[in-house]
């Protein structure tokens, strides 16, 4: 059984528990307490108001669209980085993490500058009749930018570890590339893809800094939930801010549970294979 020969448990665990309590648990408990003290009727009235519902819709739909985009682009990116050798591959590989390293406010103004009607891409898209900035499409682009690394970095290692023998076996049995991809490669990657998708989606639901610059922030159309909580705070409506923030918190915990289950399954899968 556990022999406790190493010293330092009281100190290390003490620091950890104090830090986690003060920095993480206390504020979240305070938020839950504040939201709970509203009473069910007031709480429900705030979180089910038309403006709040519209914000959930635009947030969730944009996050879905961003995740779908990243599923395709992120998968292709991971595939290209793992399976092909080409000049600049390492450079692209390093760039994948830019959305993690670049502060969200900087990403926000950069994307706005690109996609605004007079921007590099915005002017081209404008001629095609597509407006990105200050529409839900802009929200989607900001979300897709900030959550891209989640998909690439979850799929990449699993793709790297894929046993070539499986593909060779399928090839020797006469499978076409398309059928080998669909019936051998994709099933093996599915757990990682699902885990990456849930991470990217969760990140998109909570994103704030990158979005508010490009979104236009019009109530009922381009106002995300996190911004609504922020606006209620600026109006000194603390109860509404607490209630709406608690909705985001509950969603985050739900996504955390989903991700945990998916990742545990992904791990079991890879451990067996």
């Amino acid at each position: 059984m556990a022999r406790r020969v190493l010293p330092g448990l009281p100190l290390a665990l003490g620091i950890t528990l104090v830090y986690v309590s003060i920095i993480v648990v206390l504020p979240l408990s305070a938020l839950v307490y504040k939201a709970a003290s509203l009473g069910f009727e007031d709480y429900w009235r705030i979180v089910s108001s038309g403006r709040a519902l519209a914000s959930y819709r635009v947030t969730a739909l944009s996050a879905l669209a961003a995740t779908a985009f990243n599923l395709v682009f992120g998968f292709a990116l991971a595939w290209v980085l793992v399976r092909y050798r080409f000049p600049g591959r390492r450079f692209i590989d390093a760039l994948v993490d830019l959305p993690f390293a670049l502060p969200t406010a900087v990403a926000g103004i950069a994307l706005t500058a690109l996609f605004a009607p007079n921007g590099w891409f915005g002017s081209i898209l404008g001629e095609a009749g597509i407006t990105v900035a200050y529409t839900p499409l802009g929200i989607m682009i900001a979300m897709a930018f900030t959550s891209l690394p989640f998909i690439v970095r979850t799929i990449q290692p699993v793709l790297e570890d894929l046993d070539p023998a499986l593909e060779e076996a399928a090839q020797s049995l006469g499978g076409s590339d398309a059928s080998i991809f669909a019936r051998v490669i994709l099933p093996l990657l599915t757990p990682a893809i699902l885990a990456g998708v849930s991470l990217a989606f969760a990140r998109s639901l909570g994103e704030f800094g990158a979005i508010i610059f490009i979104a236009g922030n019009q109530p009922f159309s381009t106002e995300i939930t996190a911004l609504l909580a922020f606006i209620r705070l600026e109006e000194y409506d603390y109860q509404a801010a607490a209630a709406i923030a608690s909705v985001l918190l509950i969603t985050a915990f739900l996504m955390l549970a989903v991700t945990n289950i998916l990742q545990a399954r992904a791990l079991r899968y890879t451990a067996r294979g």
């Binding site: 305070a30 504040k34 909570g206 909580a229 801010a241 985050a252 915990f253 955390l256 945990n260």
Partner: peptide
């Protein structure tokens, strides 16, 4: 459980974090 608690901030919107701190140290907070 401690591991999960340490990683919680990853999944929480920064706005929620800010609002939560307001309810600890703000005038309307604890």
């Amino acid at each position: 459980f401690l591991l999960v608690v340490i990683e919680i901030p990853f999944s929480i919107s920064p706005i929620v974090a800010g609002v939560a701190y307001l309810f600890v140290y703000g005038l309307q907070g604890l």
